[in-house]
Design a binder for these strands. Sequence first.
DNA 1: CTAGCATGTAATTATTATGATGACAAGTTT
DNA 2: AAACTTGTCATCATAATAATTACATGCTAG
Lengths: 144, 144
Amino acid sequence: MSISSRFAVGIHILTFIELNKGKVSSSDYIAKSVNTNPALIRKMMGMLKRAGLIEVHPGIAGAKLAKKPSEITLLDVYKAVNVVRENQLFRIHEHPNPNCPVGRNIQHSIEPIFAAAQLEMENFLKKITLENIVEDIAKKEEIG
Amino acid sequence: MSISSRFAVGIHILTFIELNKGKVSSSDYIAKSVNTNPALIRKMMGMLKRAGLIEVHPGIAGAKLAKKPSEITLLDVYKAVNVVRENQLFRIHEHPNPNCPVGRNIQHSIEPIFAAAQLEMENFLKKITLENIVEDIAKKEEIG
DNA sequence: CTAGCATGTAATTATTATGATGACAAGTTT
DNA sequence: AAACTTGTCATCATAATAATTACATGCTAG
């Protein structure tokens, strides 16, 4: 139906860390900004950490980016938080009837199309970096 | 997570109807090809009908395409079966903290990006027609 | 060295979408 | 009238999401 808000939250977390570089970005502070539970943020920080996007350490408050914002694409975040299975944005019905010409071929006909459509979307996400988001928000704050 | 297989099933249904033009495509026959329940097929035929893609009539067995296969795009099917809400492929977390610079801006910063990414994918689907699928399967059947 | 915060992670829960299914009203054909 | 069909409703098991509680483990300041 819809791709989990983990993706949006992941972007939020990274943006928060970057825009609060001087201060300590603990799961508690981030949770307040996102307006959700600290445990959820910690779980997500774990994913971002495993993907090599941030540095966090048990017992030590706060997190920092492991790369420059310009080197973190939205695709990186998207993959880190695991919102869409590899090549599985579109689900295909299983076990169509092999005795039917349509049933025995439809999967193989559709699969490459679905994969290509997914790739179009993911390639777009690859072009946007965390820096773009951070700058956009900085600009909005100046004006506002 | 993943886009409902209704999309793939919708394509299956239309392909089945086209490749069985001479015969009667009742919900029972189609259900056997898809390997699912006839009631589900009828429900989906209702969606395809409302989208103007097929013609079905109560009491009369079978369905036929309302347009030429070359005039039915995968985007038409995708929209007909309602797998993704308009502009909502990506969900955004609600109620981020308005007292935080990130919280009060993140939604507006992310929305257009998500919309654009979704559009990339949908524009790709618009380029593929039912005719492409039908021909691909016909070709596979010749070889096989 | 210990009290007090952190992170890491497991378990639970309410909510929601999916997909399968059964039942049946209403329409059509023979 | 009998035997089909489509259209639609209600139900159900399953799976993912997002929120939450709880607690083990790690660090650090006093």
